[in-house]
Design a protein around this nucleic acid. Structure first.
Lengths: 140, 140
DNA sequence: TATTGTTATACTCTATAACTATA
DNA sequence: TATAGTTATAGAGTATAACAATA
């Protein structure tokens, strides 16, 4: 059974690697790094969150996160303000410019990819989702 | 359909992130970086390959690769010898010590993970593999 | 005392471009 | 001329530990 598990994990890694290869080119054209884009993507469609939460979601450790956020602030894509309730917390969210990068970027990535999935029907996607959800639950 | 595609990609990323979170702790305990472990894993169970091939498989660009290989050589985990046929090529392969890291590591990662997949039967793994293979083909 | 985040340090990865050696 | 790999450079990510501010 362990060979089967390994084979699935290897496939998972290969899928992810391919996706990152394609999206990486795109991200770099935006003048962003992978870590920076990760932050933008995590903050997208949210009302913002603390550094702690952001670090947990992106797996970036706090010491590193400060630097990544600094560079995104310099690019005016995010804001970092101290929380009023608990002044130990910072509140990080996308600026309008950051929102725009988020909403401009994703449709482009989607359209770039979408044509490859022409022969996927709803059932195919549902099946894929089910398998990945199940796998994710085991990995957590 | 694009939301379905995005949802699958997000799940894929979350699975990979979880896997890297778990394996990352383990890799660091070995005194290796992610890139270094990627090289070891790619060379494992092969008779070796050129820098070019290694770069293509790991998505590490040639300038970066030289440095990563230098550090693995310093750790005596790989060897890099010039090819006799075409002296432009180098031939990179695991040393016995590198082989040992590879064969020692994977069983540990497997056993760490395996218990989580107790309720996966052969059919589950086959189904997962099929879905991932199909996805991979589209992403390439 | 515990938690959140910053700062400092040393190392590694990264992309890119110029370069060397071989074909 | 083309290809494989190295070297050089500047910037960014990484882990870790010590620190400051707040609770």
């Amino acid at each position: 059974m362990s060979e089967r598990y390994l084979r699935s994990i290897r496939l998972l890694a290969e899928c992810m690697q391919q996706f990152e290869k394609q999206s990486g080119t795109f991200i770099r054209q935006l003048g962003l790094t992978h870590a920076q884009f990760d932050i933008i993507a995590t903050l997208g469609n949210t009302t913002g969150m603390s550094c702690k939460e952001l670090g947990e979601k992106t797996l970036i450790t706090k010491g590193t996160l400060t630097g990544v956020l600094d560079r995104l602030i310099a690019k005016e894509l995010i804001s970092r303000t101290r929380s009023c309730q608990d002044r130990r917390h910072f509140f990080v969210c996308l600026t309008p410019k950051g929102e725009q990068v988020f909403t401009d970027t994703f449709p482009k990535v989607i359209s770039m990819m979408q044509q490859r999935f022409d022969d996927y029907d709803v059932a195919d996607f549902i099946s894929l989702e089910q398998q990945l959800s199940k796998l994710k639950a085991r990995l957590e």
